[in-house]
């Protein structure tokens, strides 16, 4: 009798415990399902953010790579172009240096001296030139009263450097100086022949 009561009690306790455990498990399950459900939008948001960040990063890296490649290619092109322009320039300078000093050249020298005296505003001048042009300049100077040829020669492709006799003003009208003044325009002209800057 006593055993039977004890067994009933035990079975009741077991039953209650089982119920309580099952209820706890169920509630835990529901709770975790709810947490899971709640976290889905958050996870989705997080997922989207990671994707967006990844895309941003990829875009950034793509821009970096493309930008560097573009700049590198452009720089190489610039150097190649400059090389070509230099070659054209040096060939043209060679031709000028070796040009025939007869014929129109004396007219050019005359024009250069006239230009210089006009700019300096005086005819009292001393003219310097290179060894090659000395004779042409000497003969041209006879047309300019107050002008004298300097005994010093200068290093240039051609043309004259004109100085006022008091030494205060100088006008460089050598071919070198004229080329230097026009160099940017000449470079542009040469580059346009290569199809750049048209």
């Amino acid at each position: 009798m006593a055993n039977s009561a004890l067994e009933t009690t035990i079975s009741k306790i077991l039953e209650q415990t089982e119920k309580s455990v099952i209820s706890n498990v169920e509630s835990a399950l529901n709770e975790s399902l709810k947490t899971l459900d709640d976290s889905v939008p958050k996870l989705e948001q997080e997922y989207d953010k990671i994707l967006a960040d990844g895309k941003k990063e990829a875009d950034k890296i793509e821009k970096q790579i493309m930008g560097s490649a573009d700049i590198e290619a452009r720089n190489k092109q610039l150097m190649a172009l400059e090389d070509a322009v230099d070659k054209v320039f040096s060939k043209a300078l060679d031709q000028i240096a070796n040009a025939d000093r007869s014929g129109d050249y004396s007219n050019l020298i005359k024009t250069m001296i006239e230009e210089a005296t006009q700019i300096l505003g005086t005819s009292e001048i001393s003219v310097s030139t290179n060894a090659k042009d000395k004779d042409v300049v000497q003969s041209t100077l006879s047309q300019f009263s107050g002008a004298e040829l300097s005994s010093d020669t200068i290093d240039c492709l051609g043309g004259v450097v004109v100085k006022s006799k008091d030494g205060a003003m100088t006008f460089d009208n050598t071919i070198d100086a004229r080329i230097e003044r026009l160099k940017p325009l000449i470079r542009k002209e040469i580059a346009s022949k290569f199809g750049v800057g048209e």
């Binding site: 006009q118 700019i119 205060a168 003003m169 100088t170 006008f171 460089d172």
Partner: peptide, 9 residues
């Protein structure tokens, strides 16, 4: 009107 004059004073 015309540039390029060099002054030394």
């Amino acid at each position: 009107a015309e540039g390029g004059v060099q002054y030394s004073k």
